[in-house]
Every structure is written in C-alpha cells, then in structure tokens.
Design a binder for these strands. Structure first.
Lengths: 125, 125
DNA sequence: CGGTTATTTGGTATATCGACAAAAAGTGAC
DNA sequence: GTCACTTTTTGTCGATATACCAAATAACCG
C-alpha cells in the first residue's frame, strides 16, 4: 500500500540530468587515492610526479585519477616546463569533506557501541 | 624533477584506511538514483515501494540502492508492518549537496563561457 | 494455516572502473 | 636534430557496479 500522499511526481528527465551531474562530482571523490590527492592539493599545487611519489602508484594511474578530478571540475591544471601542476578549483572541497567526515564519525561511534555491547543501540535482534 | 619539498611522507596504511572509509560515503552518493532518493528522504521518511514508484525502477533495484546507502551509514530503516521506512541518518547531507552543487554551478558557468566563446576563459589553445 | 503485500536475496548479463605496461606526445637542454 | 624527462593515451585484464528477473523471506489478515 502506498503511503499517505506521494505529492511529488516521478523523476523527470531534467531532474535526472541534474542528478547525473551531481553524481559526477561524487563519483570523482569516490576513490581513496583521489581523496588523498584532493587532500594534498588543499595545501597547494602539486605536479603529477610528486603525487605519484606520494601515493606510490604508477604515473599513468595518477594521471588518470587527475583527469577524473579535472573532468568533474574539481581541479585545474597549469603547465610549467615539462611538469603539469594541479590545484583545487574550489574551496568548497572542505565542505564536502566535513560532511562526509561527520557521517564517518557517526558510523565509527555506532560501530564502537555495537562492539562494546552497549545494549539498546546496535541492530537489536 | 621533484618540486621544492615533499614535506609529507607517502600515504600510510592508517591514512589509506581513513580515505577508504570516506570513499565509502562518496561512493554511496555516486549514483543519480541514490542522490534522488537522498533528496526525497530529506523531506521525510519513505518506504521502499513509494521510492520505487517515484524512481520508476524495479523494487529490487531500489532495495539494493537503499542497502548501499544504509551500509554507508547515510540512512536508517524502521519496520512498520510489512513496510520498511527509510530516513536520513544525518542532517549533514545538505552540506554535502551544497558543496557538490557549488562545483556543478561553477562547471556550468565554465561550460557556458566556452560555448558562448568568451575569450580568455576556456581552455585556450 | 493459506493468501496477500512488502522487501530482500541470489542469479546473470552488461557496463564501467582501476591498475599496470607499453607506446605516444609534449617540453626543455644541448 | 637527439637526449632526457614528464605526462597522457592506449591496450589488456581482473574486479566491481548495476539492472532486471525469479525465488526466498517477513509481516499481516482472515
């Protein structure tokens, strides 16, 4: 049975497109290495080879991760000699991190309560 | 050649784990349908069948999307009769959306400038 | 209990992602 | 031009994600 009232109509095509655009941003952040990179870039620009060293992966891998971030509009790049330096394109990244960290912290708390056996918290069963 | 100083050491195991946890949150948001669902849940709890109608997909598909959101700690569920109602577990979702929307807006602006041919903006070449 | 409804789980086919290696492309120095 | 260095692109392959269908599970009602 349906709930009281589904006031809102089903997802329209335009809505769908908007959510796909948003999803592109989140997809770009949906990888530990890319998060690590974004975190580094928050401190200043880095070139590909530096990030390669920091992450400890193949250069081509890092380059591809950076292109994902760039296509999502999260970073910009500048050429300097043979190097390409990447920077964050938006200060709002910290906002995104803050939100995600809030959730992660809550998850950790929940997990801890479950492990420590605080009754009345976890999935009682 | 390396940049001046890579003061920070390479990614440690602990760091890696932390970024994987964060990535789980972003991964959960990295799908248009799940974003749509989260948006709906911001208005109040919905059961699976309502969301199924709103999205226009198979029930099992929606159920699976909801389980992804739940495993990431973004939503909680409550049983009421035969229905399961899902709610957001955190008000910080709006923060995440705001950040992503800021980026998307910037992307749109950039794109528009390129299309409209404003010189000195797009990827000059 | 059998019947109905709501949800989850398992199977499967397709598509996308991610990592490395190898090759290509761009830049600067000589 | 060639050499050295940095970055991107391409190819391949295994892992993951996603959609639907079908079957299993759970809750309510008579």
């Amino acid at each position: 049975m349906k709930s009281e009232a589904i006031d809102a109509a089903p997802m329209t095509g335009e809505e769908r497109a908007r959510y796909e655009g948003l999803a592109t941003v989140f997809k770009a952040l949906a990888h530990p290495t890319r998060l690590f990179i974004v975190r580094k870039l928050a401190k200043g620009p880095y070139c590909v080879c530096d990030l390669t060293t920091l992450v400890g992966a193949d250069t081509s891998t890092i380059s591809k991760h950076l292109s994902v971030l760039k296509n999502a509009g999260l970073v910009t790049d500048t050429k300097q000699g043979t190097s390409v330096y990447y920077s964050l394109s938006c200060g709002c990244m910290s906002q995104l991190f803050a939100g995600a960290q809030t959730i992660m912290r809550a998850n950790l708390d929940r997990f801890r309560r479950i492990v420590e056996g605080d009754p009345g918290s976890g999935p009682e069963e």
